[in-house]
């Protein structure tokens, strides 16, 4: 302390110190996050004997997200139908509406929008739940009862999240395609046969559907991982839990959008 002289460099040094501390903190969290992921994944095989835990989490993570996914999927599909029709009809290409709606949903909006909704609906509640369990010493208590909370609490939630999101994204896309059909065919008069046949001609099982599913699996892993880690790593106070919950939604959404770009470039880059 006493060595600190008041030179013009002092603010710079302070700033550098802060930067250093920030970076160290960042790498520390990054490391902890990956170690936790490792421990969670190594706990997944043990869940074979505790499938009830996973079923229960599938309910609170998957089933409870179903409503928001179905409603959003329907509306997104309807909007795509309307906007797509308005654009395509200028080129006399409204027959391609099915292709447009399906490709947009299957490749992009299905995985991405459902991951964003999932982060808000299921991710935040996972973080809050685990954070509160930490704050009320339930996790500590479990450790003292010789039950590993990473295996007992985190692993089933993680697995349920990773399994749920691809299914939710598929539901989102399927409902969206029907929403587009409703607006395009029933309301705007696009030919029924053209809607489906153009779609089937252009949407490829391997390139589009599989890649969409792979995307949503990756998003499922990332979103649930962030949610579970933030809860487990939070400061065990009510303020800490609420901050962690916010961080989950923000970080998970950013991660989804960033990864989407990377994955899209990898999968669809070479047309």
């Amino acid at each position: 302390m006493s060595e600190k002289k008041h030179s013009p460099l002092t603010p710079l040094l302070d700033w550098l110190q802060q930067l250093g501390r920030f970076c160290l903190g960042f790498f520390e969290r990054l490391g902890r996050g990956h170690l936790l992921l490792f421990h969670i994944v190594s706990g997944i095989p043990g869940l074979a004997f505790k499938w009830r835990l996973v079923v229960f989490q599938l309910y609170s993570v998957g089933v409870l997200s179903l409503l928001i996914i179905v409603v959003s999927g329907l509306f997104v599909g309807m909007v795509l139908g309307l906007q797509g029709y308005n654009t395509l009809v200028d080129f006399g290409a409204e027959e391609s509406l099915g292709t447009f709606v399906a490709l947009t949903l299957v490749r992009e909006l299905g995985p991405v929008v459902s991951a964003l909704l999932f982060a808000g609906r299921a991710g935040s509640s996972l973080t809050a739940e685990i954070g509160l369990m930490k704050a009320t010493e339930q996790l500590s208590g479990m450790e003292m009862m010789a039950v590993n909370p990473v295996k007992r609490i985190l692993a089933p939630r993680f697995l349920a999240g990773v399994l749920s999101l691809p299914l939710l994204a598929a539901i989102f896309s399927a409902i969206g395609v029907m929403g587009g059909y409703f607006v395009g065919v029933d309301l705007l008069g696009v030919d029924d046969g053209a809607y489906w046949s153009q779609m089937q001609a252009k949407v490829d099982l391997h390139d589009d559907i599989y890649n969409g599913v792979i995307k949503s699996i990756v998003f499922g892993i990332v979103v649930t991982w962030i949610a579970v880690f933030e809860g487990y790593d939070c400061t065990p106070t009510s303020e800490g839990v609420s901050r962690a919950t916010t961080r989950t939604v923000v970080h998970a959404s950013l991660a989804v959008l960033g990864l989407d770009f990377v994955l899209t470039a990898l999968m669809f880059g070479e047309g």
């Binding site: 509160l132 369990m133 009320t136 010493e137 339930q138 500590s140 208590g141 479990m142 003292m144």
Partner: peptide, 13 residues
């Protein structure tokens, strides 16, 4: 082989 009674109880809620 240890039982611990937490100050807060730490029951699973």
């Amino acid at each position: 082989r240890m039982g611990m009674l937490f100050q807060s109880g730490a029951l699973l809620t």
